[in-house]
Design a protein around this nucleic acid. Structure first.
Lengths: 162, 162
DNA sequence: ATATCTGCAAACTCTTTGCAGGGTC
DNA sequence: GACCCTGCAAAGAGTTTGCAGATAT
């Protein structure tokens, strides 16, 4: 048996293996990038980060990989406005949600433990088995009127912060 | 003053006027289509419905109009997977949510009155004023294994039912 | 050895936009 | 009458895909 002298298996890589996916060099890199991300990168950003680890990766592969991982339930796709899909690792049991600042598109995470239980109950009531959920709250920063920040209409969200 | 002998102002049209929008024939038609919709049409579907009322409308105008109405807070954009944006009229105060069947993309609406209050509290706790929210629940129909319905992996959602 | 994966570039789909003409307030 | 809106068609952005070669198991 040949031991690969590589850095430890990332969490996502492990999940890939458990799901019986063929682990190519590219997938390993993408898995690592995903494991290390604590924000909500879009494909282009994942690609950029992956390139810093290995230059032999194409965007097409990143697209194919996130799609595959989403189908396997390893990743979840998010839409925070702005046209691109964002991704984050599925966190079984310990869900978190997103509050999006409508004025600047910034995303704040928050938890609400009772919530998932509540949603499971709702799904059940409707005759469904809970698979996953998505909760996005849109809000506007209270008071603290900072100069230079327009509070008028909703900011068009094209390429906002993670 | 010239009285226009047209059918009554639709609910959305009324909102447009209140928001000071110039009411063109096209906008009136689109407003009416939106007012009468009780599902979540995408732009193409809105366009199709609008055409049955007036053939002098282009898709570009539908796009421009939904975008405008969304910015005004009259419409809300939804993303149920499948690449296209879906729209529905904003319902102030009485929110409803969506349960999406992961196997066939069908959307079921449900209410949960406590919920909005809960979310307003969360927004407040984080220092934000509640603007709107989005809640999507993904589930799989329990038992009742219908023949012909694959329960294996998640269905790719391209062009599903409203 | 074989089925799967990747890069590349072309193709697709959804959405936005410049421009000239038309309509609303 | 000023300004905004619309249609058309072209352009943009994000994502998917066919193919030939490379790779994992």
């Amino acid at each position: 048996m040949i031991l690969k002298a590589q850095s430890a298996e990332s969490r996502i890589e492990q999940l890939c293996v458990e799901h019986g996916l063929k682990m190519t060099g590219q997938r390993r890199v993408i898995a690592r990038v995903l494991s290390e991300a604590d924000d909500h990168p879009d494909v282009e950003e994942l690609y950029r980060r992956a390139l810093t680890l290995d230059s032999r990766i194409s965007v097409a592969t990143v697209y194919r990989t996130v799609r595959l991982l989403e189908e396997k339930g390893i990743l979840e796709r998010r839409d925070f406005g702005g046209g691109r899909a964002r991704y984050e690792a599925t966190e079984n049991g310990r869900h978190h949600y997103h509050l999006i600042d409508v004025d600047n598109g910034k995303v704040i995470e928050f938890e609400d433990p009772e919530h998932e239980a509540l949603m499971k109950k709702v799904a059940n009531r409707l005759g469904f088995e809970f698979v996953s959920m998505r909760l996005e709250l849109f809000g506007r920063k209270k008071s603290a009127a900072k100069p230079g920040v327009k509070t008028s209409s909703r900011a068009r969200q094209k390429g906002n912060a993670a």
